[in-house]
Structure formats: structure tokens, C-alpha cells
């Protein structure tokens, strides 16, 4: 088990390194940078370039960048003088996280429930409901769904605040919008997985043994059906992070996603670079956690060797 975790950890770090390098060199081949605005005087520009180490050879910059990265330092914003990327992340990320974890919990809990209920009620009303939600989840992009939910549930019906403020209630709409796509995916997978498990011989055996329906569903069906769903949780949580970029702009959340788009509009490259790496690290971390959890609950994964003739 330890070997498995160490291996996963190694790949996580390798992936992060690759992404950091790609990000760095992409930013370096930029045809323009924020300082070659003709309005900036040459001496000011030189001072700025010195400040941001842009005057040094590229490999030295790369080295400095990696060194800072290891220390956890993501650099300084090019637009907001003197503010570090870390400080901005510290300031904005909690707001994103508040919505993010709610969306993740909402998607997982309701997705699993809906999937199980739909499978148990195969071809019944709830089953069609789950299919409908799955269809909405895959075919309505969040940039469309967000404003529509905000309009009907927020403006027309007045149930929820349209923008996020201090109240818990105001987090409902953004969390639901953010989580709906993942909910659809999880419920669809859970539904098919549950249906498959219920057709297995060991379920018939359990029935023949005289176990109650509840015991069968809880003890046999769910425990086996949930395994394939766990594997997609990593990528699903990752999609929540990119999704938050849209959601935060629709619901005016002062979060990192909103800041990210702002830095794209302002061409604040060090900011874009820093946030991208932060996001990547977050995604890799969440995938790593899911992998480890999966390894813990599924002993087969540890002994899985290579097949073949």
C-alpha cells in the first residue's frame, strides 16, 4: 500500500513539474508582454524588467522560477504593484472554496442517491427523472444554465439571492449550478453500475439466502456498485475547478475564478501563470486523494498485475 501511495505521489509531482514547465515556457514565447506598452518610458521599463527578473537569461529565469515554486512562492502580480500571487490567492480562494466544496458534496451525495434510486426504480418515474437530469447536465453548458437559474429562481420567483453575500442562502444557486454537471455524471454512472451489480449472480444468491431487501441493497449492491463511481470522482472534482471560473463571474463571487478572468482581460501574465499552477496543483491533489481512497477501499487495485498471454 505504501508503495502504491509513493508511486502516485511521484507521478503527481512529475505531472506538476511538467505543467509548471509548460506554463513557464509558454509565457516566455509571448510575442508581447505587459511592459512593451509604448507609453512606458524605456528606463521605467528597464526597472520593471529588472524587478521581475525579465532581464536575465531565460534558463536562469526558469531556475529562479522553479526554486520559488518549490518554496511555494508563485511570484508577484504584474498589474497590482507589490502584491504577491500568493496573497491574492489567499484572499480570493476561500470564497471559491466555499462554493466548491458545497458543489462537490451536493453533486456526490445527490448524484449517488439519485443513481441508486433510479436503478431501484428501473424504468419508473424516478428513473426517467434521473435520465432527464443527466441529459440536462451534459447538454446545457453552465454559461447558459447559470443566468437562466439566476433569472427564474432568483429574479422571477425571488427564492434565492442572485449575487453572493454573507448569507448561506446566497451560496445555494452558485453551488447547485456548479455541481449539476457532476451530479448528472455521477448519477448516470451510479445508475448503470447499480443496474449491473443487481444483475449479478451473487445478488441472486443473497436473495436466495433470504436476506432482506435493505440488507441486500446496503450490504451487497451499493458496496459493489460504488467502486467504479469512485474512479471518476477525481476528474469530476477537477471539472468543478474549471467550472468555478464561469460560475463566479455569473454570480459575482469575489473568488479566484473571477480574478483569473480579470487577469486574462488585463494580460497579467504572472497572475495567469500563478493561478494556473495553483489550479493544477489543486486538481492533482484532489485526484491523488481520490486515488489513495480508492486504493484503500479496493484491495484488488493493489494486487492488479499485468495481464496477457
Amino acid at each position: 500500500m505504501l508503495r502504491y501511495i509513493v508511486k502516485r505521489l511521484f507521478y503527481a509531482i512529475l505531472t506538476l513539474f511538467v505543467i509548471a514547465s509548460i506554463t513557464f515556457f509558454l509565457m516566455k514565447i509571448l510575442p508581447h508582454n505587459p511592459f512593451n506598452d509604448p507609453k512606458i518610458k524605456p528606463e521605467v521599463r528597464a526597472a520593471l524588467e529588472k524587478k521581475y527578473n525579465l532581464d536575465k537569461p531565460i534558463l536562469v529565469q526558469y531556475g529562479l522560477y522553479l526554486k520559488n515554486l518549490v518554496k511555494g512562492d508563485l511570484g508577484i502580480s504584474m498589474k497590482e504593484a507589490g502584491r504577491s500571487v500568493n496573497a491574492i490567492i489567499r484572499e480570493n480562494f476561500p470564497n471559491s472554496f466555499a462554493i466548491g466544496w458545497r458543489a462537490a458534496v451536493f453533486a456526490t451525495v445527490f448524484g449517488l442517491l439519485l443513481g441508486i434510486v433510479a436503478a431501484l426504480n428501473h424504468e419508473g418515474l424516478l428513473d426517467y427523472l434521473s435520465i432527464l437530469i443527466a441529459i440536462i447536465g451534459v447538454s446545457i453548458p453552465s454559461i447558459v444554465l447559470g443566468p437562466i437559474l439566476a433569472y427564474f429562481l432568483g429574479v422571477e420567483l425571488g427564492w434565492f439571492p442572485v449575487t453572493v453575500n454573507e448569507s448561506e442562502w446566497s451560496l445555494v444557486l452558485p453551488s447547485v449550478t456548479l455541481g449539476l454537471g457532476s451530479l448528472a455524471l455521477i448519477s448516470r454512472l451510479m445508475r448503470s453500475s447499480t443496474l449491473e451489480v443487481m444483475g449479478q449472480d451473487y445478488i441472486n444468491t443473497a436473495k436466495a439466502k433470504g436476506l432482506s431487501k435493505g440488507e441486500i441493497i446496503w450490504g451487497h449492491v451499493i458496496r459493489n456498485a460504488i467502486m467504479p463511481v469512485v474512479t471518476v470522482l477525481g476528474p469530476t472534482f477537477a471539472s468543478l475547478i474549471t467550472g468555478s471560473i464561469v460560475i463566479e463571474n455569473i454570480f459575482a463571487v469575489a473568488g479566484l475564478g473571477k480574478y483569473f478572468v480579470k487577469s486574462i482581460y488585463e494580460s497579467d501574465y504572472s497572475m495567469i501563470m500563478g493561478i494556473t499552477i495553483f489550479y493544477a496543483a489543486l486538481i492533482i491533489l484532489s485526484m491523488l486523494l481520490v486515488d489513495i481512497i480508492y486504493g484503500l477501499i479496493d484491495p484488488r487495485l493493489r494486487v492488479k498485475g499485468k495481464g496477457g498471454k
Partner: peptide, 19 residues
């Protein structure tokens, strides 16, 4: 491929398009 697939493509897309 595995490494590239770990991170959602939208992040790369944003990076590349800012360039």
C-alpha cells in the same frame, strides 16, 4: 498522455490562447 490528461484541457486552452 496520462500526465497531459490529469489536468483539464481548459487550463491549457486558456494558457495557449493568452499566448
Amino acid at each position: 498522455v496520462e500526465i497531459l490528461m490529469t489536468v483539464p484541457s481548459l487550463l491549457y486552452i486558456i494558457l495557449l490562447l493568452t499566448v
